[in-house]
Amino acid sequence: NQASVVANQLIPISTALTLVMMRSEVVTPVGIPAEDIPRLVSMTVNRAVPLGTTLMPDMVKGYA
């Protein structure tokens, strides 16, 4: 089972991601792979991401 990136807090729309905002967790459905966390830092989300939500590729500008 692959770990995915999960929001560690509410991430408001257009917020630049930082390490403290994300954690890795094995979830269903599978989202962005946890090993991509370093790549996600400073990318922005294009929607509000509630606490505990799995980050999907279409939620992060420039990721997909």
Rank of each mutant, 00 (worst) to 15 (best):
N1E: 12
N1A: 15
N1G: 13
N1H: 11
N1R: 10
Q2C: 06
A3N: 09
S4K: 01
S4H: 00
V6R: 02
V6L: 07
V6D: 00
A7N: 01
A7I: 04
Q9Y: 08
L10A: 15
L10D: 15
L10M: 14
I11A: 02
I11T: 01
I11L: 06
P12T: 08
P12H: 08
P12M: 07
I13S: 12
I13M: 14
I13G: 11
T15A: 15
T15W: 05
T15K: 06
T15Y: 07
A16N: 10
A16Q: 11
A16E: 13
L17Y: 00
T18C: 05
L19Y: 12
V20N: 12
M21N: 11
M21R: 00
M21I: 03
M22S: 01
M22V: 06
R23A: 08
R23I: 06
S24D: 07
S24N: 05
S24W: 07
E25G: 11
E25L: 12
E25M: 10
E25A: 15
E25F: 06
V26E: 09
V26K: 11
V26F: 08
V26L: 14
V27F: 03
V27Q: 04
T28V: 13
T28W: 15
P29V: 05
V30K: 10
V30E: 15
V30I: 12
G31L: 02
G31F: 03
P33F: 08
P33Y: 07
A34I: 07
A34R: 05
E35N: 11
E35C: 06
E35I: 15
D36H: 14
D36C: 10
D36Q: 13
I37P: 00
P38F: 11
P38T: 15
P38A: 13
R39Y: 11
R39G: 08
L40K: 00
L40W: 03
V41I: 13
S42G: 15
M43Y: 10
M43L: 14
M43F: 14
M43N: 05
T44I: 13
V45H: 01
V45K: 00
V45I: 07
V45G: 02
N46A: 07
N46T: 12
R47S: 10
R47K: 15
R47G: 05
V49D: 02
V49H: 02
P50F: 10
L51F: 13
L51Y: 13
G52E: 03
G52K: 04
G52S: 06
T53E: 09
T53W: 11
L55C: 03
L55K: 01
M56G: 05
M56L: 11
M56P: 02
P57Y: 09
P57I: 06
P57M: 07
P57R: 09
P57E: 07
P57T: 06
D58I: 08
D58F: 12
M59N: 06
V60D: 01
V60R: 00
K61G: 08
K61V: 15
K61M: 14
G62N: 11
G62S: 07
A64K: 05
A64I: 15
